[in-house]
Every structure is written in C-alpha cells, then in structure tokens.
Design a protein around this nucleic acid. Structure first.
Lengths: 107, 107
DNA sequence: AATACATATGTTATTAATAACATATATTAG
DNA sequence: CTAATATATGTTATTAATAACATATGTATT
C-alpha cells in the first residue's frame, strides 16, 4: 500500500486546483474544441476580459495552454493531451452522478 | 461551440475541488487499492485522526466513498468507478509533466 | 453499567482563492 | 506619431478552504 509519490501528487493537486474553477474549466472545455482568441473566449463565456486573461495566464503558467499570435490576436490552444482525458472522464462521472441523483430525487 | 452544461459543470467543479486536496487525494488513491478503516488510513497517511475523519465525511457527502461497519471499525471504500479514471488520467498527466520538466530543467 | 477503543463533530485562527475594477502594455492601422 | 484594438497586469475586498485542536458520540467487551 503506497500513497502517491510526492512529486506526482503535487502536480496532480495543481491540475485539480486549476480545474476546480468554473472559468478555467470552461476555457479548457472550449479550447478542447478549437483554437480561440481571448476576445472569442470573452464572447462565449460572457465574462470580463481581464478575468479571462488572468485565468489564461494561470493556465499558461502551468503549461495547460499555449498561444500563438496572429495579427492583433492571441490564439490559445491546449498544450497537453492528457488533460482532455481528465476533463472527459470527469464529465462522465458528473453525468453519472447527476443522472443518478435525478432518479433518486424523483417522487 | 458550447460551454459545459451548468448542471454538469457544477458537479465537475465539485469533484475537482475535492481532489485538489492532498489528504483527500491520498485517501482516494489508497482506497482505490483496497478497503480500509479510518485507523489504517491514519497510519498510512500519518495524519491526525480527526483530519482523516473530517475528509472522509466530505468525500462521503459527495458520494465518492461509502463505508460499512465491521465490529468496532468503519471500513471505507470507493463509491464511484469513474473516479478511478479521473485519478489515473491525471496521474498520467502528472508523470508526463514532471518527466518533461525534468528533461527541460537538466543542464 | 463502566471502561476502552474507534470514529465523528464543532470551533477557531490562519491562509489562500476569487472576482471586480482600474490601469498598463503591445501591436497594428491610419 | 497617434489612435484604436487586443490583451495583460496590479490592487484590493470578499469569501472560502485548511489544519489544529478539543471534545463528543457510539459500539463492544467485561
């Protein structure tokens, strides 16, 4: 019986912390579908631009997204393939729990 | 382009929040391997018993663990199969990032 | 029923995360 | 070189999470 190696655990915690924020989670979820500029994210998520930029900076600092400049725009995309799995597995779990709860809660 | 449905998003956030704590992450990681009593978790994780119990209560409240009583002991186990995937995918990501960084950081 | 063991709960101080806002920088177009 | 657009950074107030500790409950055994 072993607990998680400290070095991996720290990284896992970090990722989970990043994902436990609705703004960042939605950013990653949208970028999972396609590359987007800051303004496009602002439009889709209907949040103040500084909040989007701030969270993109956090995601970038932890190597979850990268960007390239195109004209005036910064186009962001995901930087790590594994994160897709994490988000998708969790979405499955969420669907499962929510559907299960819906049943349980009926009548 | 759609953001995550609010009902699922809330559940996802909740799970990520639960997992972003080292104590809870390690509890789940150990329970992934076998059913354990509170005291066994205390021994493995070398943390004060109330802290373990407190976090088990949080995990139980969110349907991530259940327990059965056996004699004097409460034996806890995982309550949700999807969580395994989430933890494992994230561990893979963590290994990837940590190994990658190790290379990058050399020389 | 009393004791001991196993676990749970409640309280508080400390620390960290968040959103909101103002402002700054950088690039492009005129 | 100036204005406009796109994005980034800094500051602060508010709120939430955490760990640490004391204490309570609950069951088993005698």
């Amino acid at each position: 019986m072993e607990k998680i190696k400290a070095i991996y655990q720290t990284e896992m915690e970090r990722v989970f912390k990043l994902l436990s924020n609705p703004t960042r989670l939605n950013i990653l979820y949208l970028l999972e579908q396609q590359e987007l500029s800051v303004n496009e994210l602002v439009d889709y998520l209907d949040l103040p631009q500084p909040q989007i930029s701030h969270n993109l900076a956090i995601l970038k600092a932890h190597q979850l997204v990268t960007y390239r400049r195109e004209g005036k725009k910064n186009l962001y995309k995901l930087d790590d393939p594994h994160i897709l799995d994490v988000i998708d597995s969790t979405k499955k779990h969420a669907v499962h729990v929510v559907e299960g709860r819906a049943h349980r809660d009926e009548a």
